[in-house]
Design a protein around this nucleic acid. Structure first.
Lengths: 331, 331
DNA sequence: TTGAAAGCGCTAACAG
DNA sequence: CTGTTAGCGCTTTCAA
């Protein structure tokens, strides 16, 4: 690449150590030599090789991030906040997308470790004891967001279950008497980490268990377009005021779109509630009722917690931030 | 971190070179020693230190990316495609956000170079001869997307001017007789690279120059909310069928939102056309008419072109991909 | 089939 | 105030 300290040393007829001192501005050094060294360095466009430095210091000042994908607005927002915070703290960010591929996730993590990132932020698709063991074996700190792994793996997030509970509570207070939980296929729970959705379902069920006179159902295949058709059945519950509680705003948006096309009125014919509060809701009408998952705050907190760990501190292993039910005009 | 080749060598009582040969699987080596080395490596969880390797090979297998921010859906989509393609080709991606801060952009680029990324993809906020010189001085290949710099800096994008020209042409064919170009403050053109918007304006003007009987205007301060109010004036051109041509979908969406609140009908009272074809349009009604800027294809092409350059090839310096005017229901 | 030696560019401990 | 030495973990001749 450019000029090295060795060459500067040769040109200035001093040792590399002296060059280093001039460059770093610390340690005793005569103003004259310092001046000379700096001017040569500057003139020749000296730039430190951070790779070489890292090899010695053991620090690369890189944070590795691995999430599902960033077409998903939730992750885009998350990543934006992670990058901002990391930059503020002097760290670079390596971004990798696993696309819900369990093996790819492992390859990516291994790759980041091999590249000697100082720490890792992960929204995992893997789960279970074996993966926990794997994460514990990794020689750099890891912080998990989004999908919980276990009490032994540092986590930052919201209380998904309570959030769903609160959302359902809101629907009940709005006098809905039939509430349908809409989420991705739960069958994948065996192979993929869909902790968040499972928890939300659980909060949904828990709140409904307190009611005698409220109908409920679960539609757990929102990954398939034809399931949209089944939603129409919900409308035939004419006597019951029905709401769809979607475990993710994108599901809710797809449903809104479908209803819009089909001439179904929201909330006239049916209520809809989402989850995540992704930014694009700003541009969608009617304004979707949803649950804020504090994604920016989660991201920032994850970075901070990770950096603490990288510095040998031991912050709380499980950090739960506040969620909020947001009333739009779809319920 | 973990075990090193040196230690494996010691344990197996061979030289580091031999260990290397076993690990790499090339060069002549006796099956017995190879087996032994591999089993020790495996048992002790050997992982290569890619940092050390990079120091020697001069390759980090990292691509550095610097864009505005990724709250912006356009960049989120771009980055997603960049990451996918890079991963396919065996590269890692370093992502950095300059947030329209010219100096931050330079710091970021310097940082990426110091970290020895193998190449850089940039959507620049800087512009001008000095910046061009700076980019040329960088010891790794750079490919620019989004905002053109000069003929000497490799670029991948669409023909912004022609795209705007075509969009206006479409509006004219729809018999609009007043067309208003809406864009961010052009005054920033002195300090920021807003090449795309400038080009679109130019295409707008060029097409209109061919018409005698079409009114036109430019509203160039869409960064300020109160400029939304001025849009109402456009409605009073009762005799003229008016369309707003927005240099960016997000402007169009904000306007749609504003009109929606104000009870203005689109396209009944006024037509709207956007630019970019960001994915979220899928969820917005009425369906926005817009121009596809082929962002995924630009991203993929940029990665491919960059990798060619990193391999010493010299692909075309300016790659122009096809845009497309998309008819929604807002004109 | 194996090993010795040199070196990537930098840092760090210690000595002068 | 300055220099020497050693070494991070790996690759790469060259020699045995």
């Amino acid at each position: 690449m450019g000029i090295t300290t060795k060459e500067i040393a040769r040109i200035c007829e001093v040792s590399r150590t002296t060059v280093d001192r001039a460059l770093k501005g610390k340690g005793r050094i005569s103003p004259v030599t310092k001046e000379k060294i700096l001017s040569v360095a500057n003139e020749r466009g000296y730039r430190p090789d951070l790779l070489a430095r890292s090899l010695i210091t053991g620090k690369t000042m890189h944070i590795g991030v691995c999430v599902f994908d960033i077409r998903n607005y939730y992750f885009a927002e998350m990543l934006n906040s992670i990058e901002n915070r990391a930059y503020e703290k002097g760290y670079f960010v390596n971004i990798n997308l696993q696309e819900e591929d369990r093996e790819k996730e492992i390859r990516i993590i291994d790759g980041m470790v091999d590249h000697r990132v100082d720490g890792i932020i992960l929204c995992p698709v893997n789960k279970g004891a074996e993966f926990e063991k794997y994460l514990l074996s990794i020689p750099v700190p890891v912080v998990v967001i989004g999908n919980y792994i276990s009490g032994r793996i540092p986590f930052v997030g919201i209380n998904e279950k309570q959030a769903a509970y609160d959302a359902v509570d809101t629907l009940i207070k709005k006098s809905y008497s039939r509430i349908v939980f809409v989420c991705p296929p739960l069958a994948f729970g065996n192979s993929k980490n869909i902790y968040s959705h499972e928890q939300r379902l659980s909060g949904f069920q828990e709140r409904l268990a307190l009611e005698k006179n409220i109908d409920s159902a679960v539609i757990a295949d929102m990954d398939y377009i034809n399931s949209l058709n089944s939603l129409k059945n919900e409308l035939s519950y004419g006597d019951r005021k029905t709401a769809l509680f979607c475990s993710g705003d994108v599901y809710a948006l797809n449903i809104l779109k479908y209803f819009h096309k089909s001439g179904v009125g929201v909330p006239r014919d049916i209520g809809i509630m989402g989850f995540d509060n992704i930014h694009i809701l700003e541009f969608v009408f009617p304004q979707l009722s949803t649950v804020s998952n504090a994604v920016e705050q989660v991201a920032v907190t994850a970075v901070d917690s990770l950096i603490k760990r990288m510095n040998g501190e031991e912050p709380e292993n499980k950090i739960i931030l506040k969620h909020r039910v947001l009333l739009g005009s779809t319920i």
